[in-house]
Write a protein that binds this DNA or RNA. Structure first.
Lengths: 350, 350
DNA sequence: TTTTAGCACTCAGGGAAAGAGAGTGCTAAG
DNA sequence: CTTAGCACTCTCTTTCCCTGAGTGCTAAAA
């Protein structure tokens, strides 16, 4: 059943009032905030029906009304007005994002930190490769008798390097040979393939070199696997302690533990959509059943994709949070866009 | 004035009982726990004097006694018995430490995480170079017309690399020349010196190369500075919510904010000592005034030094915490000892 | 002089009782 | 369909009282 316009209007007022005050909203207050002049009694009748329909809840008989998850959902889907960020704020966000030019993880973490302090809620961020990473090129640089440098370039243009401590002395002039071997046999390989190929060449080369080779392959495998792993960082978790819904230490503890330990289970955006809102029980994780999550995704160059999300009480200012989040996501995508702004080599850092 | 043996014994009982229960300790309970048979009345007299002397406090007239910071200090300095970890536990710690072989930051963070879950308190970790880091060697590898790879080795044997996006096309055959220039003019330099030297060579080379050169120098400078910066990580902050002293959300919030935002001000060990215990008001930071900190340091190879610390209520089990912390510090030092265990190149990772 | 038993006293914590206030549901009139 | 009026409900706060743990003091015992 479709709600009448007036019911929707009332629902909207209730949600927005409750978002601000965290107190059940009474009929009189609603009447005051509604443009059209209707008496509180009328409102009361409407409220009773909205409760009936499951959009509102009543903490106890003689209290005001509180939105139910379903009410929030309706609000988010139909009632909520697009919040327009002030130019000033957009500016501030973009400026903040451009400030830092460091390693990928840190830029993202800094963004999450900033978002968290804007919203007053905890946030989380993560980045992961879109497709399986592969090796692209190897280079071995001699250092001295017992050390050499391994440089490895990956399919997403990132470069990793590492000092290799040689167990057995390998004459410097063997390195180019080994380097060639790597580039001929171990390029464009996924972690799984690496080890297979290692088997293939095992008989072609002398044992001393093979030892070094397997050391290199092990390192490369780990780097590839590491980059594939999506590492979630949470920021500003302590913010929840400001909120009235977490004045109960037990509840606060539960959520904070989840944010610290179970963060891998925080929601992601769907494949298609750029943003996703999960309200209360819509969350799968038990720890989030009384909270809401808004999460957006952004592109990191062409090969990676990241997410940035906000965790808050169901009584969250969805309009503003969603607006800010889009702004952040857009800003990050722009920041990582390789086709723009030439002097940005730093962003591909690791 | 020196305390009598019996007073010390009583103080010890009070501290240890309070550490366990977090409840003020009464004279009767003390009488029960003391080996020598004395009546509670006698204890009461002694207690009154200990309060007089500032070793104990009384929350209110008719409550038991609670150790004052001074009491804890006395306990830590003289009364506390060396806690001996069980072999099993030492084993577990060392096994846990050896498991991970990743980037430095992560190994350390993993150690902090483990420590935190052992103690049930928040922990913090950090690592920093002992002396100013310098450049040691540069290498430029061609990729294609508009990209090349910069490899840079530092005085602590770490290697960093980076894809450089060239603003102007630089013919591949110019790279060795540039590489030589770098190795002849920019080696063994601190960040400050780097820029000075850049000035020196500015006229010797053509503008296109100079642009690239300054890009490289900027990158190198940043890397050197980054490595010098001591980045503190805090772990398990939410643990405090389990403690009775932080059932007050306000207090919990204050400390958690500090752990998240002011962590740079967390105490370090002194130059000399390997471990340091700070009790309540001995802490400089306001947020730690009601808490205690135990911090230990460890060596990371020859060039770096790290700290690992525990934050808890003044009512902390100092004996156990100190013992575990030493074990962790020793384990980490051993883990990072380059002169041992040949196949460990990974630990010098970044 | 030190220790002990005895006893009155203090004070925090918990529970019951009472009052206030906000808000509802219902009824009857507009 | 809307509104005014009114009785009713329920939480929250305050107050009061009681209980119990633990003390401090005094006077006797060692």
């Amino acid at each position: 059943m479709e709600l009448t316009d007036r019911k929707k209007q009332i629902l909207k007022v209730v949600v927005e009032d409750y978002i601000q005050t965290a107190e059940p909203v009474g009929s009189k207050a609603i009447a005051g905030q509604m443009g059209t002049a209707v008496s509180s009694a009328t409102i009361r009748n409407e409220l009773a029906e909205l409760v009936e329909l499951g959009y509102l809840e009543q903490p106890h008989t003689s209290a005001g009304r509180v939105p139910s998850p379903r009410g929030y959902r309706m609000y988010v889907n139909e009632l909520m007005e697009q919040h327009r960020l002030s130019l000033d704020e957009t500016e501030r966000i973009n400026r903040g994002l451009h400030l830092k030019m460091e390693e990928l993880d840190r830029v993202i973490a800094a963004a999450g930190q900033m978002l968290s302090s804007f919203e007053g809620y905890p946030t989380y961020v993560a980045a992961a490769g879109k497709k399986q990473l592969r090796t692209r090129r190897f280079e071995l640089l001699p250092v001295d008798d017992s050390n050499c440098i391994l440089v490895m370039m990956m399919s997403d243009d990132r470069v990793k390097s590492q000092l290799l401590r040689l167990q057995l002395k390998v004459p410097g002039d063997k390195l180019p040979m080994l380097s060639n071997l790597l580039n001929s046999h171990f390029v464009a390989a996924t972690p799984d393939e690496m080890n297979l190929r290692l088997m293939d060449v095992s008989e072609q080369i002398e044992p001393a070199l093979f030892l070094l080779l397997s050391q290199i392959v092990a390192y490369a495998t780990r780097v590839l696997e590491d980059s594939a792993r999506r590492e979630v960082q949470t920021l500003g978790a302590s913010q929840i302690l400001r909120l009235p819904e977490f004045q109960d230490v037990g509840k606060a503890h539960e959520l904070m533990r989840f944010l610290a330990e179970g963060k891998e289970n925080l929601p992601t955006t769907d494949e298609d959509g750029p943003m996703k809102i999960l309200i209360g029980p819509e969350n799968v994780s038990d720890a989030l059943r009384d909270s809401s999550v808004v999460v957006a995704s952004y592109d990191i160059g062409d090969n990676m994709r990241g997410i940035i999300g906000v965790v808050g009480p169901t009584r969250m200012d969805y309009a503003t949070v969603a607006a800010r989040l889009s702004c952040f996501a857009a800003g990050l995508t722009r920041l990582f866009d390789t086709n723009e702004l030439p002097p940005k080599e730093e962003k591909r850092n690791e």
